[in-house]
Design a protein around this nucleic acid. Structure first.
Lengths: 147, 147
DNA sequence: TGATTCGTAACATCAATAGTTACATGAAAC
DNA sequence: GTTTCATGTAACTATTGATGTTACGAATCA
């Protein structure tokens, strides 16, 4: 499979939207992300279903953020996207008869569960507002460097 | 992509080999894993290159473990397999010009790096000998239940 | 009514593991 | 040395899920 970049994509899109007052069309967001408007609609649709954004049709329509940036964590976005699989590595057989394979699975599952818990905790600690502030900092640094 | 189960497969194969004195053929291991002998040879080939197993051709040939079970950690096996990608999730663009995307990438990379470090530490703490002991425990439990 | 934009179906593309077939190479036994 | 068994490896297909693309219907506003 290709690597799943939907969380990255939605974050990128949301931060661009946060920098604007007017709605952004799928076409415009597709330009920002370097992808197709249909892909944008498909992915952002999950956030709409979770109530994090709204979409208006017709002229002057497009996507708008419908939540407080401080309350939207990466974890909430991951959940909104349907909690896609985090790991590319896994057990060969999830419910083996073989006792050897059961031992192998148990050991791997322990390790992956711990890593997943840590990742989701980290995700819970980072909000869109945090990312917006980080972007503002980078933006100010670049301007300072250019002057 | 399909989920990568090579670490799981090699662990399963190695533990079956550890339970025996004589070499095991790719055919026999394929039966244990429910897969094709060629797949076994392909995957075990990495362990051979790392010096963890040897393969003898001809009649009475097959695969043998060439290392102390106490010294072979899951991490060492992961490395022997070429350190395949751990995460199914990633950044959309690894070297973006866009400052927004740079902020997004930085946040995600931090979280993923922490989770990967934890996972590899866990992997380093578990050896084939540990798994063999766990298997022996499960085996004794099953026999006790059956009597 | 016409232009704009989302919503969605349908299909093609891509990437990496897994599976399969075929055959060359090497080792052991007779 | 011929036969048999097993690995080594190339070449190809199957699988899986995200991503990309085309097409068109539905809603909104001037």
């Amino acid at each position: 499979m290709k690597r799943d970049s939907r969380l990255s994509s939605t974050l990128h899109a949301l931060l661009h939207m946060a920098e604007r007052d007017s709605p952004m069309t799928s076409e415009a967001l597709g330009q920002c992300l370097g992808t197709n408007p249909v892909v944008v609609r498909r992915t952002m649709g999950h956030l709409r279903e979770a109530g994090l954004v709204t979409a208006d049709r017709g002229p002057a329509g497009g996507w708008r953020i419908a939540a407080d940036l401080e309350t939207v964590s990466l974890r909430r976005l991951h959940e909104a996207l349907g909690e896609p699989a985090i790991f590319a590595i896994g057990n060969r057989n999830e419910t083996p008869e073989c006792l050897v394979e059961q031992s192998v699975n148990a050991a791997l599952e322990d390790a992956f569960a711990a890593a997943e818990a840590l990742l989701l905790d980290r995700f819970a600690d980072v909000t869109l507002a945090d990312l917006a502030r980080d972007f503002a900092r980078r933006h100010a640094q670049r301007r300072a460097r250019q002057e």
